[in-house]
């Protein structure tokens, strides 16, 4: 298995608060890697560092063998990393189809081709019947799917998903898990996801990385990590206190 993403000694502080400390991990190509940890563990910061939204203080990010540390978000997207946001950011005043077309344009030669591609993705995510609706009118589950559709439209080889299941009902979560499994199996898409919904993590992930106070405290298969005493304690310590 080759590594799609290598994160080496990545660190970031905000005004003295150490959000990400010396984090190091690899995400293998074609595998779903989950990043878990209590609130405030630095998961989203880690994503923002990988996606170029913020610049790291130290460390590096390699993607497909090339160094992408410090590139701008649009350059990183061009390199083949798609991302979603924890708080979804649809283009509210645009239609669903336009949202996804805007993403598809990066790799398609013109608007017509991008629209065709966008509609394929909308079909894949069961959003075809809503394509003429404004994104602002969608329900939360649909907005989460739109967020995913838009990221997919950029034809990434690696997808960073920040809590795409949060706020979904169990049936909707299952639907999303099924969609992601299909993308991973059928298209060979590498996925790194931040997730609180453990059911989804267990169903999807080939590997789990646990962050606590910005540091990686465990790494391994879902089953191994779930029984790791350090992990159990970090959750109990954080959630109960």
């Amino acid at each position: 298995m080759t590594a799609a993403l290598e994160v080496v000694n990545l660190s970031k502080s905000f005004r003295g608060l150490r959000a990400v400390v010396d984090v190091e991990f690899t995400a293998a190509a074609g595998v779903v890697t989950a990043v878990i940890g209590p609130n405030g563990a630095g998961k989203t910061t880690l994503f923002n560092l990988i996606a170029g939204a913020i610049k790291p203080d130290a460390g590096s990010v390699r993607f497909g063998g090339t160094d992408i540390t410090g590139l701008r978000p649009d350059q990183i997207c061009r390199a083949g990393i798609g991302r979603t946001f924890q708080l979804v950011r649809p283009f509210a005043g645009l239609t669903v189809e336009e949202n996804v077309t805007a993403g598809a344009l990066m790799r398609e030669p013109d608007v017509a081709a991008a629209r065709v591609h966008a509609n394929e993705i909308l079909a894949l995510l069961d959003l075809s019947d809503r394509r003429r609706r404004l994104a602002a009118e969608l329900t939360l589950p649909d907005r989460k799917r739109l967020e995913l559709a838009r990221a997919l439209a950029t034809q990434p080889t690696l997808l960073l998903l920040d809590e795409v299941m949060a706020g979904l009902r169990p049936t909707e979560t299952d639907r999303m898990v099924e969609t992601l499994t299909r993308l991973n199996r059928e298209r060979g898409l590498t996925i790194v996801l931040i997730e609180h919904v453990m059911r989804a993590v267990m169903a999807l992930a080939g590997k789990v990385i646990v962050l606590h106070h910005g540091e990686k405290i465990a790494e391994g298969s879902p089953a191994a990590v779930a029984t790791d005493p350090a992990v159990v304690e970090s959750y109990l310590g954080a959630e109960v206190a």
Binding site: C77, F85, F91, L94, G103
Partner: peptide, 26 residues
């Protein structure tokens, strides 16, 4: 408005951060 540039402008108008994450050089 109907070409690539129009789509990109509208994306930036609606949300520059999300636009950047879609590969648009804002």
């Amino acid at each position: 408005a109907r070409s690539r540039i129009g789509f990109y402008w509208r994306a930036i108008r609606e949300d520059p951060v999300a636009a950047e994450a879609l590969g648009i050089d804002v």
